[in-house]
Each structure stands twice: as structure tokens, then as C-alpha cells.
Design a binder for these strands. Sequence first.
RNA 1: GCUCCCAUCGUCUAGCGGUCUAGGACACUGGCCUUUCAAGCCGGCGGCAGGGGUUCAAAUCCCCUUGGGAGCGCCA
Length: 482
Amino acid sequence: MIRVRFAPSPTGFLHVGGARTALFNFFCARHNDGKFILRIEDTDVERSTKESEEQLMNALMWLGITWDEGPDVGGPFGPYRQSERQDKYQKAVQKLLENGNAYEVFAHPEEIEEIKSRLLSEGKPPHYEKEMFSEFDNKERREEFQSKGISPVVFFKMPRRDYSIVDIVKGEVTFKKGALGDFVIMRSSGLPIYNFAVVVDDIDMEITQVIRGDDHLSNTLKQLVIYEALGVNPPTFAHISMILGPDGKKLSKRHGATSVEEFKEKGYIPEAFTNYLSLLGWSHPDGKEIMDINEIIKMFTIERLHSSPAIFDEDKARWMNGVYIRELSLERITELSKPFIVKSGLLKEQEIESNEKWLIKAVDSVRKNAETLEDIAQKLTIYFDEPDYEKVTIEEDNEKRVSGALAVMRSNLDHVDSWNQSSIISAVKEAIKTKEPSKKDFYHNLRKVLTGKEEGPELIDIIYLLGRNEVIRRIDKVVNPV
RNA sequence: GCUCCCAUCGUCUAGCGGUCUAGGACACUGGCCUUUCAAGCCGGCGGCAGGGGUUCAAAUCCCCUUGGGAGCGCCA
């Protein structure tokens, strides 16, 4: 049984890179009928917050991810929060201490810091060795620590030999001896360090495959030696490359949106965003790009993950979002648009309810050229705000055929029996036939008179949705009645 | 500085020694359709980082160079 996990630290929003890692783990689990575990890595008490944990889970759910085991749903290998697994780390440290793979150091943080800077200033790599701490290994120190109630920091004794793994995406990776010195696994606060906690948990939770960002590739060495010291075979690793900004640098705040929460707020649709993210470093064997989550799961294999970093291309993400806006059911798109409509102040929540039918049609009229839900709200403003008529002038020939046709249309519309698309079409066509303006000019100017814009929904839809009174009112602002 | 990773159109990618005068998608661009703009459809532009090998044959394998990225914390 395949068991994979996503193990974020609750220190902020869910970064798109993390989201993609979560997604790939999730796809892998579902494709193989395995289990997907959510584990919260909150050993950094300074930065971890309960709020971000919740936020993280919400973002994950928004993406369409579900987990089989986790802090909220529980499971047979809990608890799923590292802060609650203290006893397990303690036990593992004890074991390492006993079998000589780790040692305690009775030094204060500043003293260790000092050793590090001395090494650096001597031009040596900052690699610790047990002998460097010998001056602190005495009775007085032990007593001092005991009386003050502080624990010694625990270092792992790095074996001096080569290690290698066969990474599913990177291939064989060899870490030469001397790449690393001894490293801390337990802080003096008694809390474990990331690389140690991860291994203990992954063993405990019977994780079979680790899929994570390749910023962890170097960490793998630390984890490998811990597996070895604990006498456990490591899982298989798959290190996917990072997501970069448009300038090829690690995606960060200065590139704009970096968290899934931000993309949600910008009006991305979860299905589309998930779809786009899944295509960063993975591809369907036939090159298919628009896929729902089930289809991705069906086709997903970690062997198809590819190894070079990917630049996040918001143009393409927007395009894909637009595809979903056009293709998802109108009801769902309307539903998703509502918060954006309220936010932009077009309608209040109660007004949305009483205008539901009209709203659905209005959303339908603008969705064709919207790329985000924000676009939809923005494009909907033509139905609420009238154009700035100071700036609207009719461009036409000397014979004024356009304004003539507009006037005729206005009067036709005024007399239409029932207000529907086909009667509106007849009224418009009739007007064109009567005054014979160039169609292009006519429609262009009609749009400007009604909306003040150069582009937008189908004109017939605009007329229909604006309603007779409003259409006539707007025309009258510019054109004299017949 | 040391260690590791990466390298196909501007971007995401297909490609796993011959089927590649390198395929698809976004962007850009030309046209068609249409009651305007858009959407849609059809076409165009554009790439194997450079240099050495290996081989009858290399985008594909190896080495070097260059360029990018990551890690080296009592952060994760």
C-alpha cells in the first residue's frame, strides 16, 4: 500500500509551490489507491500558529484535496501534529544516544555559534565534530544545566562515508563524505529539529514515498543517516523542482501573488488552478491539458514528473481559468462570482437573491471574455453604471445614418410588445434596414452609447438585460428622438 | 566558499539512439466565421545553451564549459 504525506509548517499562507507538492502527493495516493496523510510540522513554536493551520487546510480543500489521515480527521498513526508527538521523538533520541549515533552537548547557543564563526573565519566549512565540544563536557556543566532545568542539545554523529539514493525524478544522487558535519537533532528546548522529526514521523506513519520540493534534496542526506541509525529502510524519494517567478528566480512576493489564497481572491476557479498547477512539471501522456481532477488522477504517475524548474506563467493560468469559466456550468460560475459581485459593490447579498434569474443571464453574457471571476464582476458593471456621456460621441458619416438608425431603433424598441431576444433582434435589424448605416459603424456606436466601451457582451444581450427603460434612457442621452 | 540539482520555441512541455527538415499549449501574429468586440476555427513566427566525445546514427548516452537554482541554522 502506497502511503504518502504532505507536511507543511503552519507559518503562513499556502505557497503555490507547496500546493503543487500537495497535489502531486494527493494524485499519487489516489492513483494507486493509497493513503494521503496530512501532517502539521509545527515544531517551530515561534512561527507556527493555529490560524495558519486552519488556513492551510482550507486552501488544500479549496484545491480539491482530501486527506485520509490528519490532525482533524485522525487516523491510526496519530497524532498528526508534531507538537503532539514529543514522546516519539524523545524515544528515538534515546535510542540514538544509546547506540552511539548521537551525543549531548552541554554548551550554550552562543558558544556553539562562536565555534561556527571561528570555523568560518578560518576558511573552513562550518562542520561540527564531537571533539569541538569537549570543553563543555564536564561535571560543572552538567550540574549547571540540571539546576537551571535546561536540556543539552543533541547532535547526530555524521558517519564519514558516501551515501546515495535513487531518486525517482533526479535519478541516482550521491552525497560524498564530508559534505556535512554533525548536526543538531534536538534543541535545548527539548523540541526536535525538522530533519529528525520528519524521519521519526515518516517511519511511524509508514510513509512509503516521499514527494517534495528539491530544496529538500540536500536534506535527504541528513535523513538518510538517521534512517540508517534507526535501523529502518528509507522510503523512496521523488524530488520535484521548484516553481520560479517570471525572472527565473524563486517565486516570491515581489512577483505578485504567491499563495493559493491570493489566487482565490483574484478570482481563480479551484478546478482551473489545480489543473494549471498539475501541468507544472507533469504532463498527460497524450499532451492533453484541460483535465478535471479525476482524469489527472487516472493518468498521474510520478515517473512522468520532470526534473527542471518551472516558471509560473500567469498568462497561461489566466487563459486556463477562462476556459473553465466558459465551460463549467453557468450555475456554478454564477455561484462563484457572487462574492466578487458583492465585493465590487454592484449588488448586495439580498439583491442577488431577488435578482437570481437576471444575474444568471448577465453572468452568461459576460463569461465569454472573462478570464477570472473578478473580470466577471468588472464586466458586469456595464449593467449598473451608465457611461460617462461627456465622452461619448457618435462617429459617423455626413448623412448621420448611424444616429438616424439609433433613433429608429429606439422608437422600435419602445413599441416592442414583449421584451425578448428575438423581438429585440427584429427591432434592431429593422432600424438598420431603414437607415442603412454601415453595420460595423452602427454596432460599434450602439455599444458606445449603451456601455461607453469598445468591447463587451453581445449587443442584443446587453439590450435585453438592461431592460427597455434603461436602454431608452441611455440612448436619449446621446441621440435625439425621431 | 563547499555540496547537490537543472538546461528543448519568450513561457509550460512532448521527446527516453533511427519514425525529429523536433510535436502540442500559452503569448504574439495573419485569416475565416459572425449582427460589432470577444469566443471559436484555420494558418504563421519561434527552440534542442556552447564545445568535445561514444555510435553507422544523438535533442536523446558520456565529459567539459557556460548559465540558472537549491542546501550548508538549537528554520522548515
